[in-house]
Write a protein that binds this DNA or RNA. Structure first.
Length: 717
RNA sequence: AGGCGGAUAGCUCAAUUGGGAGAGCGCUGCUUUUACAAGGCAGAGGUCACAGGUUCGAUCCCUGUUCCGCCUACCA
């Protein structure tokens, strides 16, 4: 090669584009199970197809890329497997918004056409994030790109669902679940975000049925649900009230009499008045108390969280009260009930009280406890082995501190509600024989936000489902041929829980599965430890008989200026692509790596990125200087014959390599980055290059620079 | 309510097992001598949140306090 004249300053755009092309043309990132070397595999946490790359991805992916390229340099058989997630509710919301802008709606299209529309949307703009990932220089094996709803993965979902059902680990039942009245679907416990709000504690007089002059004062934060009360509880050891157990009180605003029960679990002697109303259909504690005392569940809100007048009628509510409350949402029903109680002199007092309000993690709407038939995974039998795997070190969580977090949650885990009343997702493979279940179906017209309608099928909780990988043709019980399929789809996280083996070809026995499972490392943020990591461990152990990964590295969260979590719906996302355009991709990636120290969240400062842009430029110019001085003879002298600066820099180089290696082994990307920075800038450039300038006219040194260039370029990018 | 983490230079953040406190950006002065002014050299700037304790010695270990953040939670 002659003497190419490099530009005086580093131009990331041109250089990045060139290298990116070389990489993909040469197929450097393509993995094969037959390649030599010990396998090293990372499956990427699949970003939502709706998404575009945000700084959190940039951090998460940069860390993985560092590990991947580092292991590749060590000669391991490396696979970095990319993909995207169908993100049920989130994606459905995005497409629904588009429809709304066109004056259409999900309901007006109907299920089939709506799903087609989502696929269409996915085809046109769903891969935005993938091209952005490529722009970030991620060295994934792009030939193996997967999607949680592609054929192979859907097959895996079916297989898992049916087997779990056959093992008795999936069941259907009517339970109180978290319901988002806007998304019109059930949510799992962890899909609810809690927020402290200022509320009030209402003290309400419930007169005794046989002695109207005496009353039990009940304290509640939700007076609007009282019309669904089916009992009042006191503590069995409470000297004030225990003699009342077994008697009845009149429920204000109604003609109903409800029993007083003793319940030591529900009632806290210290709190409020010591008397608690029990509303089994609208409160989780009360639901359980209702189970204990075999109480009726009276639902007074409908699926839009509006007062259901018809149900109030069944519940013996006074006629004028029904008219006053008809169709009111919770927020309006509460002050209305308060006023009605006041009119009747049933309200003793109201005091301030802070309480936690549950909100939908996708749309921030206030979630209501709602009684409905849903599908659940019986989780305890899956959780136990998943706890053991972490306890005995088969899976190591880094930083270690999160281990207790994981264990604590797993030990107290509750059954997982996996059915969602939306359209976009894996439809539950359950069918109901029409003749066997006659009378157990209910269809109702559903009005969406656009006032156009579609029908929804509700199947009674006591119906008998047939769970199979494909639609049954003949009912095993009655020989009938007509079936209705369950309309629910699965929680998005159900398919992502299979990700480490479904992407490798399971349930087929593929060479990939054999070579790369268990995968090596999982890199993720803390926010999806329970959503995703815990469930992968449970299902990996269940279906592969081995852990899905050996190490879990949990990195910091990138926050915005106010320390808030960045999220698409909040619109406070910093665009990494913009930053990359301004300072270069390597500058961004190096910045993120250098800030990835454990135990602290990252607040991204632009000045910092600029500093590392300068660093990239420094490297560029070191290379430029070297090329300008490469003319002339080069000899690889024996160590003893090398000049002092040469020997010194080579020894420093080797120490740096060792240091960086050990830091990477410890997942200390910040320290690895700093070691590189210090060596390259302050030792190699400041001292070595300056020292050899006088001798460069002659011969001795210049193969040192060559080795160093390659080291730098590959290690950090 | 419980659990965890943080508090270090003007700003964003480091500091390997207890011993001299660092980087980037910003700031001051000098420097345009052919790798790089996105550079080089020199420098200012810190009661390491607060109060105790252990120790020959504490930013680091222990106790308590204050402030901030996060996670979990059914106190009606």
């Amino acid at each position: 090669m002659g003497t190419p004249q490099l530009d005086k300053t580093y131009d990331p755009k041109a250089v990045e584009a060139r290298w990116s092309q070389v990489w993909s043309q040469q197929g450097y990132f393509h993995a094969s199970p037959t390649h030599p070397g010990q396998p090293y595999c990372i499956v990427i946490p699949p970003p939502n197809v709706t998404g575009s790359l945000h700084v959190g991805h940039a951090l998460n992916h940069s860390i993985q890329d560092i590990l991947i390229r580092w292991r590749r340099m060590q000669g391991r058989n490396v696979l970095w497997l990319p993909g995207t997630d169908h993100a049920g509710i989130a994606t459905q919301n995005v497409v629904e918004k588009q429809l709304m802008a066109e004056g259409a709606s999900r309901e007006s299209l109907g299920r089939e056409r709506f799903i087609e529309r989502v696929w269409q949307w996915k085809a046109t703009s769903g891969n935005t994030i993938v091209s952005q990932q490529k722009q970030l220089g991620e060295s994934c094996d792009w030939d193996r790109l997967r999607f949680t709803m592609d054929d192979g993965l859907s097959k895996a979902v079916l297989e898992v669902f049916v087997r779990l059902y056959e093992d008795g680990l999936i069941y259907r039942g009517e339970r109180l679940i978290n319901w988002c009245p806007r998304c019109q679907t059930a949510l799992s416990d962890i899909e609810v975000e809690h927020e402290d709000v200022k509320g009030k504690l209402y003290h309400i007089r419930y007169p005794l049925a046989d002695d109207p002059h005496t009353a039990l004062i009940v304290a509640t934060t939700r007076p609007e649900t009282m019309l669904g009360d089916t009992a009042v509880a006191v503590h069995p050891d409470d000297p004030r009230y225990h003699h009342l157990i077994g008697r009845k009180v009149c429920l204000p605003l109604t003609t109903r009499e409800i029993p007083i029960v003793g319940d030591a679990i529900l009632v806290d002697l210290e709190f409020g008045t010591g008397a608690v109303k029990i509303t089994p259909a609208h409160d989780f504690n009360d639901f359980e108390a209702g189970e204990r005392h075999k109480l009726q569940r009276l639902q007074i809100f409908d699926h839009h969280a509006l007062i259901d007048a018809a149900k109030l009628q069944d519940a013996s509510v006074d006629r004028e009260i029904i008219e006053a409350l008809r169709g009111l949402p919770v927020t309006k029903a509460r002050p209305k009930v308060e006023a009605l109680l006041r009119e009747r002199d049933a309200l003793v007092k109201v005091e301030d009280h802070k309480m936690a309000l549950g909100k939908c993690y996708r749309c921030k709407t206030v979630v209501e406890p709602y009684l409905s038939p849903q599908w659940f995974v019986k989780i305890q039998p899956l959780a136990d082995p998943a706890i053991k795997a972490v306890e005995d070190g088969r899976i190591r969580i880094i930083p270690e501190g999160w281990t207790n977090n994981y264990l604590g949650w797993m030990r107290d885990i509750k059954d997982w509600c996996i059915s969602r009343q939306i359209w976009w997702g894996h439809r539950i493979p359950a069918w109901y024989c029409e003749s066997c279940n006659a009378g157990r179906f209910k269809r109702f017209i559903e009005t969406g936000e656009s006032k156009t309608a579609s029908t929804r099928l509700i199947v009674a909780p006591d119906a008998t489902p047939i769970v199979a990988k494909s639609a049954p043709t003949r009912c095993p019980d009655c020989g009938g041929h007509n079936f209705l399929q369950d309309e629910d789809v699965l929680d998005t996280w159900f398919s992502s829980a299979l990700w480490p083996f479904s992407t490798l070809g399971w349930p087929e026995h593929t060479p990939e599965l054999k070579a790369y499972y268990p995968t090596s490392t999982l890199v993720t943020g803390l926010d999806i430890l329970f959503f995703w990591v815990a469930r992968m461990i449970m299902l990996g152990l269940k279906f592969m008989g081995d852990v899905p990964f050996r190490e879990v590295y949990i990195h910091a969260l990138v926050r915005d200026a106010e320390g808030q979590k960045m999220s698409k719906s909040k619109g406070n996302v910093i665009d990494p692509l913009h930053v990359m355009g301004q300072f270069g991709t390597d500058a961004l990636r190096f910045t993120l790596a250098s800030m990835a120290s454990p135990g602290r969240d990252i607040k991204l400062a632009e000045d910092r990125i600029e500093g590392y842009r300068n660093f990239a430029n420094k490297i560029w110019n070191a290379a430029r200087f070297s090329l300008m001085n490469l003319d002339g003879p080069r000899t690889a002298a024996a160590p003893s014959e090398r000049t002092f600066p040469d020997r010194w820099i080579l020894s420093r180089l080797n120490q740096t390599i060792q240091l960086v290696t050990s830091e990477l082994e410890a997942y200390r990307f910040d320290r690895a980055a700093n070691a590189l920075y210090h060596f390259i800038w302050h030792e190699y450039c400041d001292w070595y290059l300056e020292l050899i300038k006088p001798t460069l006219q002659h011969s001795a040194s210049p193969d040192g620079p060559g080795t160093r260039q390659t080291l730098v370029e590959t290690l950090e990018t």
